[in-house]
Structure formats: structure tokens, C-alpha cells
Design a protein around this nucleic acid. Structure first.
Lengths: 159, 159
DNA sequence: TTCGCTGCAAAGCTTTTGCAGTGGT
DNA sequence: ACCACTGCAAAAGCTTTGCAGCGAA
């Protein structure tokens, strides 16, 4: 899924109208790519203060069902939303100790996913794939020295 | 990871004590395999009413960091926790329209995951892999007739 | 005219946290 | 003694929802 117009199509096939409010939410979501629900509420309302918080949440739910956004719960801070198109797809590897997040790509997994959904007669809309573990540093670090509320930082890595 | 004693070991390497409360939470979690945080609170407190809600939540966070439990947000109802051992590992395929959930296994994906973490020097503790899409029925159903709050049911399928 | 969509504001639910006391090491 | 851990209860944070009005089909 790549273009805005395709999103519109996809929504239509699900009997969903792309109203002005929803289009605004979608536009701002695409501008961010990564965001929390409340960040998006704030951003959208700075542009059009008449848009209600509830509408943003309702739209996020719609977009998720349509496979346009994913919701990630990394357990540090509020859940994070991500737009699934407009960027090469990637998944996440996270250190449960320090909170480091690495984004990776593994095309062979993507291929296998298609095989799985085909097996069950599904039409794939989106997916999330998260690996949790200990990064090299945290494997050897004294756990008692580990930060309680790790700073979250993202490294863009294509493998 | 397969045995209780290994969990204890794993926690120790992270400088975490397995107190009576934590052991109880873990025992009950294993008894359920699938549960929500509040279900577990209720269950644990029926056995020992002196255990505080906060302790259960704190323990769940610990167990998650240790890779013992996973947290799934299927967007229908509260987040669902799952014990990652004591059962053959499986991942999830969900219909975003009707809420059907299929559990599947794909060993080749598991193998690729190991390759990914190795590439980055990580030690893998756990993972989640969710595929979202439309089931066969919902692909052809009139979307306007789709239930707003689908009933969630799980099919155990090993592929 | 119907039915989906929205704003508003409140309610609801889940989770986190400050603090003081307890217990293991 | 220290410091992790806990109970308690309140607070915080996030999301949902009832309702009345509006607008597109």
C-alpha cells in the first residue's frame, strides 16, 4: 500500500467515509509516521481546534482496522502508533533492559507471512513483529545498575 | 525456556528476587496461560488477599522484561497477557473485522528471528508476531453489516 | 429520511506511583 | 544497616461513550 488514494479506496471497500476530520487525522499521521494518540490529538487540534479528541481516537481505530496504522506497546510510555505505508516496512528489536530499539527488515519473514495468511484464506492488511531481548551491553552489565526508566532511542538499521 | 527453575535462574541473572508474592503471581499466570492483568489480580487476591494490585502489575512488568510473559493488544477489550513457555510457541493471525483469532506456528520464521538477533548481538528473550487481515468470510461480507464489537474467539491451529 | 459522523464532556478502565513499613542479605 | 520489595490508596493516564445535532447519500 503506497498512495493516499489507495487508502481512500481501501476505506471505501470497508464502507468508511473519508471525512474532512478523518483526512486531517490521516494527513498529520503520515506527517509524523511515529506518534502517540495524544500527540496526534494535540497536533490535529492545533490545526483545527474543532476536531474532538474522540474523533481522533475513533479515526485511529478505523485506520488500524484498515491496516493503515499499527499500534505498538513498547511498555515505556504510552503506546506508539505507526503508519504502515509511505516508508519501507520494518519490524522492531528491543532491549528489555535499556529500551534501545532497532528497526530491521527481513524480507524472508515477509514472504513467509504471505504463505501463512494464504493458508488460512486471509487477506493480509498489516502486521507487527517484535523481538525482545538483551542488547550486547546489557548482557554483560550489572543488572542492579540498569536504569529503571530507560531512555528510548531508535536506530534506523536496514539489514 | 521450559521449567520454573529456569525462570528463577533467569530472574536472578537480572538481579531480581523471586519473592513469595512474585512466585504466586507467576504460578497463577502459568495456570492461566492467557489472562488480563485484572483477571490475574482477582485470581491472586482470592488466594492471598494481602497481595496488592500494584504488586501484580509490577510483577507482570518484571516478567515481561525477563521474557516470561508477553502482552498482546488485540484492540478488543483489555490487553491480554500470555506466558511464553510451558506450551508450544505460537503467533497470531487476526481478522480486523470480526475479531477471529487464529494461532499459528511457523518454524521458519522462528529460525529467521534467531538470525536477526544474532546479527545485532542480542540475546533473544521473547517475541510477538501478529498478522492483521480479513478472514475469508469478511472479505465478501457487506461491511455495513459487520459487527461493531465482534465476539472474540480463538481457534487453536497448528500449521 | 436515514444513518453515519461529530463535538462535547464525562465516565470508565487500566496502570502507575508516593510513601511508610518490612524483610532479606 | 542497606536497599529491594510491598501494601495501600490515591492519582494519573489513556481511551471510550452517551447524547444531541449535523450532513452526506
Amino acid at each position: 500500500m503506497k498512495r493516499f488514494i489507495e487508502v481512500e479506496q481501501l476505506l471505501k471497500t470497508q464502507g468508511i467515509r473519508l471525512t474532512a476530520q478523518r483526512a486531517l487525522v490521516l494527513r498529520r499521521a503520515v506527517a509524523y509516521l511515529h506518534f502517540t494518540a495524544e500527540e496526534l490529538v494535540k497536533d490535529v487540534r492545533e490545526i483545527d481546534a474543532s476536531v474532538a479528541r474522540g474523533t481522533v481516537y475513533r479515526t485511529l481505530a478505523l485506520l488500524h482496522r484498515a491496516g493503515v496504522v499499527e499500534k505498538h506497546d513498547f511498555r515505556y510510555g504510552p503506546p506508539n502508533y505507526e503508519v504502515t505505508f509511505a516508508k519501507a516496512h520494518h519490524d522492531h528489536l528491543m532491549c528489555v533492559q535499556c529500551g534501545e530499539i532497532i528497526e530491521f527488515q527481513e524480507p524472508r519473514v515477509e514472504a513467509l507471512q504471505q504463505a501463512v495468511v494464504k493458508r488460512f484464506g486471509y487477506q493480509l492488511l498489516s502486521h507487527t513483529h517484535k523481538l525482545y531481548g538483551l542488547c550486547r551491553a546489557c548482557q554483560h552489565a550489572d543488572p542492579r545498575r540498569a536504569p529503571k526508566h530507560p531512555h528510548l532511542h531508535v536506530e534506523e538499521v536496514v539489514a
